[in-house]
Amino acid sequence: MIKYAFNRLLTTIPVLWIAITVCFFILRMAPGGPFDGDRPLPEAIKANLAAHYNLDKPLIEQYFIYVGNVLQGNLGPSFTTPDFTVSEQLAVGLPYTLILGGAAFFVSLVIGVAIGVYGALKRNSYPDHILAAIVLMGLVVPGFLVAPILQLIFGLKLNWLPVGGWGDGSISYLVLPVTVLCLPHIARISRLTRGSMIEALNSNAIRTAYSKGLSDTAIVWRHALRPAMMPVLSYLGPAAGFLLTGSLVVESIFGIPGIGRYFINAALNRDYGMVLGTVVFYMVLIMVLNLLVDIFYAWLDPRVRTR
């Protein structure tokens, strides 16, 4: 198992290197530079700035400087916020994004599986159809539309929850952003669970269990849920990554200082170091999450290990 995990980790290094290289050169192809703006700077000052950040050197030399720095764990300076290095900024934003993403991950898993199992047990009943319809809306209505609607209803009209921000970090500030982040995933997980649960309930093992006169709950918990969870688990790897990127929208609408917001601002401001730093960071995070899911998967289903 440890060897398996280690091998997986080793393969991530070339991937990271390729991604950094591609990003680095793509970024430089983009028109506009970090020091262009509505108040154009005189050439002399632009030259000072370029020299300050090594941008006056040949591109290939800049590339080697950058890769060298990354190897030493230094993600370099940020052009848009010179008071912080890229690593410092990411360290500040990380907890917010992790708390938000982690909560959303957990909530969508619990609610998604619950709806899926319920739907499978009461398949084709009215509650099943109604739940399916509600869940489907979560999938097709874009998050940037759901968010302001929820703010309006729960923040302003009912006055139950804060409209935005992180405040004192209490749960009430998390409810709306986590909901928005969850909805599409609840939809996907519940659809997946329902499908595989129906399949599991139709299997011979379950029929035997029914014939033995076991209760519904016992059958679901002991026999059906575990095989039914396998396809759901394989969805969780990419979903974890997507929750992080989904926070792009949620963080900017709710004004939460996570990492998602940095990326877009940095790309728009041609903050090369920050863009690369965010990409590297997200990739490592997604890879680690995928790895965890894989290990969990292997633990649940021994066949994967032997393969």
Binding site: P148, Q151, L156, N159, P162, V163, G164, G165, S252, I253
Partner: peptide
């Protein structure tokens, strides 16, 4: 810091 002025106005209305 909040670039989305529509969201900001909602927070203003909520007294934030």
């Amino acid at each position: 810091a909040l670039d989305d002025t529509t969201a900001a106005l909602k927070r203003y209305r909520a007294g934030e």
